[in-house]
């Protein structure tokens, strides 16, 4: 169904703005989608388990500052800075996971706290300095396209296929659904609930690190402002893609469609109306209408 909406949107767009749907424009705009797409993958897993991660944008900020501080301010080799940024991302995700599994706090609260804490740390560490001046080879990794996709685009495709297979075909994927459907039952039936949660929240941190490293290459800077308000966009995309916020239901393909729909809507609204203030209006409405339509249809189908 989402696909139909997407097609309808593109037909409308093509009618109003023929240039918008040209392959050149679409290719050019593609670089805007990868942050959202990359972060939406682990978020799909997390939401299927009934959890949530509000700290993704803040994890991006902290990893970004790590990268900038080590390479630009600390004059360490770039590979070391990248490695450190990845480690920081993983550590952030892991810390979320520990609070959720070992301490037993609701993910919404844990990540609400780390949402402030991680960005706060990033601000404190950088004393909001903006680090720029990355080497050309690093920037070309972020900017250049290889066969019409950027490096992160290819990375996303590989990751998405991998995630889709894991979620649909492996015992691990089934345990993700089981946790979301009924966590207590999952525990009693011997599934390693905590291990699964640790993995997915850590992956979320890793994805944030990858996205922010790519951002540094693409825009040649690293700072504590990176990824501001990102979390709400990512959650919107995943939920739009049909994943139930209560857990137990969702697919990677749905998430990809959700991401695509938000991306195209946003770009089209900007392209056609030139009113940035319409974008939140339309995206917000899209979210409510899509989920409402889904809820109504579900109810009808369960009745018949």
């Amino acid at each position: 169904m989402l696909l139909l909406v997407l097609i309808a949107l593109m037909l409308t767009a093509g009618h109003l703005e023929p240039k918008f749907v040209s392959s050149r424009s679409q290719e050019g705009l593609l670089s805007h989608v990868w942050d959202l797409a990359m972060l939406a993958l682990p978020m799909t897993f997390i939401i299927i388990t009934g959890g949530i991660d509000l700290s993704v944008g803040s994890m991006m900020a902290l990893t970004s500052v790590t990268l900038g501080k080590l390479y630009i301010a600390g004059h360490h080799p770039l590979w070391l800075a990248i490695l450190a940024a990845l480690c920081v991302g993983i550590a952030c995700g892991l810390l979320n996971a520990i609070f959720i599994t070992k301490v037993g706090v609701h993910p919404l609260i844990v990540t609400l706290a780390t949402y402030s804490a991680y960005r706060g740390l990033a601000e404190g560490i950088s004393l909001p300095e903006i680090y720029s001046g990355f080497p050309d080879w690093f920037r070309s990794l972020g900017q250049n396209t290889y066969g019409s996709l950027q490096l992160i685009g290819w990375l996303f495709i590989i990751a998405a296929v991998f995630c889709a297979i894991v979620l649909a075909k492996t015992p691990f994927g089934r345990s993700i659904y089981a946790i979301g459907f009924n966590e207590t039952a999952a525990r009693f039936s011997g599934l390693k609930v905590n291990r699964a949660k640790v993995i997915i929240y850590t992956l979320s941190g890793l994805a944030a690190a990858i996205v922010s490293i790519n951002y540094s290459g693409l825009r040649d800077n690293a700072q504590a402002n990176v990824g501001l308000n990102m979390e709400l966009d990512v959650i919107t995309a995943v939920v739009l893609g049909g994943t139930s916020i209560f857990g137990g239901r969702g697919r990677i393909l749905g998430t990809i469609l959700g991401v695509a729909l938000i991306h195209e809507t946003r770009e089209f609204v900007g392209w056609h109306y030139h009113r940035n203030e319409y974008v939140p209006l339309v995206v917000g409405a899209l979210l409510i209408v899509a989920v409402a339509a889904n809820a109504l249809l579900m109810r009808r189908s369960s009745r018949t």
Partner: peptide, 22 residues
């Protein structure tokens, strides 16, 4: 309509912000 409250209010959060700017 039975939409989860976090979704409804998230949607409202973005929409009302847009309306305010307009």
């Amino acid at each position: 309509v039975r939409i989860p409250s976090i979704i409804v209010t998230l949607g409202m959060l973005t929409m009302l912000r847009g309306l305010t700017v307009i």
